[in-house]
């Protein structure tokens, strides 16, 4: 009782002693460190809430409405999702997006791995730095400029690429006006621009491969190709997994290069799902339907990413 009475303030309140205890608790090392930690992650958490979780929840909500800006909003249940089943254009743009994805995963990672392997060889240091910067340079240039330059290069009549093709008796190829040409152009620009980033990741992984392992293989008589296939590839498989996953996610969101290069045309030949979402949301002002499409794309990306992680156990060397 005496202790309890001592803990009370002159007016009978017990909070000063509680306050003192709280202060002591706050000053303890464990709590102090935890608070610091929370403070450090607060900007990231806030950013996540404001720029990711909030918009995602809003998009899910809007996908069940017929929302158009400055108009009354009505709840329409799953009508937008049902509409997608009969939207032929949506099916086309999904096929296009998967074509971009496959092309990006295969070409971008294949080229990046080949170049990284080449750069990892015994090249003069200066040459290696120059080449590494050159390969990475396209990733640093604003895509708007990149696409405009490529449009200039790929124009059928008067384009630089067709000019050089004509010198060897080829073409002209309608890079931007034909269906196959437009898709090919978008893939070329996308691969050209993003290969540098994948290359840096592969190069870092290759530099971690112990020289003694590859040298031992060569001493045992393994060819360059066999060493690469059976020793290097397994050892850098985590990097391959990382690049493949990033490429899948990125390629399914391809947008800017299409906007500048082909605007999705001719027809819908080169239109991606994200471009279609932009068109429905910001040109037709069908925000509800655009939200529903974006939610399905979000689902597709999550499923593919989960499949990648599931398959990881089978082929990624974790040692």
């Amino acid at each position: 009782m005496a202790n309890a009475a001592d803990a009370r303030s002159p007016n009978g309140s017990s909070w000063p002693s509680r306050g003192a205890r709280l202060l002591a608790w706050l000053r303890s090392d464990r709590v102090y460190e935890a608070l610091n930690g929370y403070l450090f992650i607060t900007p990231v958490v806030l950013g996540f809430l404001v720029f990711f979780l909030g918009p995602t929840i809003a998009a899910i909500g809007l996908s069940f409405t017929d929302y158009e800006p400055l108009s009354e909003v009505s709840f329409i249940g799953v009508d937008n999702y049902v509409r997608m089943l009969s939207d032929v254009r949506l099916h086309t743009v999904y096929v296009n997006s998967f074509v971009y994805m496959v092309a990006a995963v295969v070409l971008m990672n294949g080229i990046a791995l080949g170049l990284a392997y080449f750069l990892n060889k015994r090249l003069p240091r200066v040459l290696r730095y120059v080449l590494r910067s050159a390969y990475f340079f396209p990733s640093m240039v604003a895509l708007v400029y990149v696409a405009i330059i490529w449009q200039f290069l790929l124009t059928k009549d008067g384009g630089v690429v067709n000019y050089y093709l004509s010198l060897v008796g080829l073409g002209p190829i309608d890079w931007l006006g034909s269906g196959i040409g437009a898709v090919t152009s978008v893939i070329i620009v996308d691969v050209w621009r993003n290969t540098g980033l994948a290359l840096i990741i592969f190069l870092a992984a290759l530099q971690d491969v112990p020289d003694e392992v590859t040298e031992a293989a060569r001493i045992d008589g393994a060819s360059e190709w066999r060493t690469f296939r059976t020793i290097v590839i397994p050892l850098i498989s985590p990097a391959i997994f990382l690049n493949a996953t990033l490429t899948i996610i990125g390629s399914l969101q391809i947008f800017e290069s299409i906007l500048i290069l082909t605007r999705g045309g001719p027809g819908d030949s080169s239109r991606s799902v994200v471009f279609y979402v932009y068109e429905k949301g910001f040109q037709s002002f069908e925000m509800g339907y655009a939200s529903a499409i974006s939610i399905t794309l979000f689902g597709v990306i999550i499923v593919l990413t989960l499949l990648m992680f599931r398959a990881r156990r089978r082929w990624v060397h974790e040692g």
Binding site: G177, G179, R263, G265, P266, G267, S269, E279
Partner: peptide
């Protein structure tokens, strides 16, 4: 009132026609 949509849809088809695809 739906002019942005008209322009988007019409010019997409015009692009297809003038490219000789249809």
């Amino acid at each position: 009132r739906n002019q942005p949509e008209v322009e988007t849809i019409f010019m997409r088809h015009i692009g297809d026609i003038l490219a000789g695809n249809v």
